[in-house]
Structures are given as C-alpha cells and as structure tokens.
Design a protein around this nucleic acid. Structure first.
Lengths: 111, 111
DNA sequence: TGATTATATAAGTGAATGCTTATATAATGA
DNA sequence: TCATTATATAAGCATTCACTTATATAATCA
C-alpha cells in the first residue's frame, strides 16, 4: 500500500516523455549517461538532471564502473511500473546497438 | 501498445495528488463535482478544472443527470491504471458516506 | 603531472501548472 | 419569470519544471 501523495510523486516522475523514455530503456538493460545522451539526442546535463530526479525518487540505482556511472531500474517495491512498461514500444534496433557498443557491453569486465 | 509521449501525458495526469485522489474515488464509485468538493475540501472551480483535464485526457467520462454532472472512470483501454489503483489506500468511511448521501445515491432514480 | 573523458552541479530562462477570485452557463423549482 | 443550485470558464498569480550554458568534480591515461 502506497500513500496517495507518494504515488503521485512517483507517477509525476514517469509523466515526462524524456524520463519515461529513459525508464523504458533501463527496462531493457542498464545504461550510463553517455548511452542515454546518444540514444535520446539530448545534452548531458539534461540527462544527468533527470537521472538525479529518478534516483531521488527511488526509481533507479546508480553504480560507478570506472569513469562511467551505470543506472539500472529499481522496481522491487513498484510492480505497477512493470505494467506500465509492458505497454510501451520496444527499443529501436539503433538504440539497442548503442547500448551494446558504447562504452562497452555492460556487465562484461571491459573496464 | 501506447506511444511513449501519449503514455507520459496520461501519467502526468495521474501524477498530481488531487487528481490521483479523484481517480481513486471514481474507482470506487462515480461522483459529481459536489461530491469531490465535499470530500477533498477544495474549491469548486479547482475541481472542475481538474475534471476537464481528466476528461480531455480520456480518463473519465461525464454524464449529466439533472443539475448534476456525474463523472466515471474510463479505464477500458488503460489496464495499467487498475494496477496503480490497487496500491492506493481505501476510501475513508467519511468519503463513502459523502458519496452515498449527497446529492443522492447515484444510479437510483432520485432525479 | 597534465590532458582527456564522463558526470554532476549551478544559475538563468521561458513555459507549464495548480490554485484563486470573479463571472458565465445551465438546470430546477417557487 | 425569477431565485437558487450546480457546474464551467476566464483571468491573474506564484510556483514548478524542463531545458540551456557554464563550471566543478572525478576517473583514466599518456
């Protein structure tokens, strides 16, 4: 059970096109800021600021690996998010290739 | 399948405490503006403007019955909303009694 | 150490948002 | 028809928000 105002804050985070796109990407696979900059064609500070909001809202986790900071989705206590993501479009082939090519395949020890 | 920007707009509508409260009430039972004013203790124009946004976003339907306009939830093509509402608190006893006492029990022919 | 790369933060700006008060529209009932 | 009740709309206002540019922090590598 989630208090209404807390739920509203979480939904507000999802109620932005850019952030919802980010969440959709992270649903597929973890990503660093440079991935998201490349895929979404937005400036780095803009993405960073969105990630901070998502992190503060408990929707994503961060993990530094070398120079890069990888973000991953944290849906453990928010099963409704999965339901939302099920209705979103698949990632494009281009997005997928960006995720796999730069800076390296996540979770492989290339750093 | 829902385009990301459309989904973001729908979630933005839910990402407001007052509107999420309204949706939660309508999940329980249809209501007119005066119900919502009484339950949420907000001004009538404020509620009316929220209802307009919800209607424009396709989340609620309106039906005039005499002086009153009753709003009901329209979730047919949005199953994810149900999933969200499942996590929200139940209506208070007070809210339920307001819904049943003024202006009359909905769907009974008291008008 | 110094240069480069990745990310975060700060400050500024224009647009969107939620609310208020005032007024308009519409239905009811004496 | 006129007063009352219910709802919608309009205008104004303070706040929030997403974005930009500039700068700071941090890790890597020559």
């Amino acid at each position: 059970m989630i208090p209404t105002d807390i739920m509203a804050e979480q939904l507000k985070l999802l109620g932005d096109k850019t952030r919802l796109n980010i969440i959709n990407i992270l649903f597929h696979q973890e990503a660093c800021v440079c991935h998201l900059v490349e895929i979404l064609k937005m400036t780095q500070p803009n993405i960073s600021q969105h990630m901070r909001k998502l992190k503060d809202g408990g929707l994503v986790q961060e993990q530094r690996r070398g120079q890069w900071i990888f973000y991953s989705l944290d849906m453990n206590d928010k099963p409704y998010i999965r339901e939302i993501l099920m209705h979103l479009p698949e990632l494009s082939e281009e997005s997928r290739s960006v995720l796999n090519e730069i800076p390296c395949k996540p979770k492989e020890d290339c750093i």
